[in-house]
Amino acid sequence: MGNQDNLAQQFDMERYEGKGSKNVKSPKNNQKPAKINSEKNLPYLLLLPTLTLLAIVTIFPIIYSLVVSFSGYDTFGNSIGFTGIDNYSNVLTNGDFWNAIYVTLLFTMLSVSIEITLGFTLANMVSKDGKAMQYLRWLLIIPMMLSPLVVAVVFRLMLNTDMGIINYLLQSIGLPKINFLGEASLAFASLVFVDIWQWMPMCFLIILAGLQALPRDPFEAAAIDGATKFQIIRFITIPMLKPIIIVALVIRTMDALRTFDQVFVLTQGGPGTSTETISYLMYRSAMKFTDFGFASAGLFIVLIITIVISTLLIRMMNTSQAKG
């Protein structure tokens, strides 16, 4: 807040100076250097509050956890001092950690690829139809605006073994009850399903916006030349939409990698550790076992993995945009 006040003062002063120089009507060559000077620092000044706050919530905690990652903690969460690289070797030899990485990556790849495929199909179906598109867009906004936690609560009710509507429907057509959240592969599939429900609409909307911005000519030319629908999509739509599809891919991947809320509500990582994402494992080791050292070391490794993935994705986005 202090920064904010300072900045406001500086703006006022500048405004004041501006007025003053206007009244004096100083010769142009006198006015110019002053302006250049104030312009030189102004951009940085305007950025200062944002960068300061960002440093407080990102860089500062990361440095803090770097320190913590070299310390041991007892079962009450009290620091017991410097333990060197013990935490890192513990993390890297921990089966749960590698399992969580596997679960997170598999979850991300499955749900994001299905979401993009479905979103792409749906967008291609409504792109021509103005009315249908409007209504659908109006309806499809809802899931992605909801809190993932609330969505997970609703699905927890629907997937319930005894009184869930899905099991009721299965029974009414003569199938046995299924304990969706109690079996490893089903619990994992349920998480993917919930993610698709919530985020497929977002892929749809992004791709639809891209489709509507495409020029019509290539499509008309291809139709005149007798190209089939499949050929049009394969050889015209997909290449032209590639930059937009990659934007959707990047944004969805970033979010899917951090999945936590749904796991918290639906499975608590279980049964066993079959649905334990990285975020959930870190939560469990920090809050349940108060092993902050272990968690911080794990977070550092996660941070490095995330940086690698984001760099790759951003590079992908930049090259595709440069071409497109």
């Binding site: 990102t58 990361i62 803090y64 956890s65 913590v68 951090r258 990285i278 996660v302 995330t306 951003i314």
Partner: peptide
């Protein structure tokens, strides 16, 4: 700087939330 700000958005919250809790 724009890119730097964007990377802050890409940071998984869990990386920050545990040290934040301690701080």
């Amino acid at each position: 700087i724009s890119f730097l700000i964007l990377t802050a958005r890409m940071l998984p919250p869990i990386v920050v939330v545990i040290p934040m809790y301690l701080i």
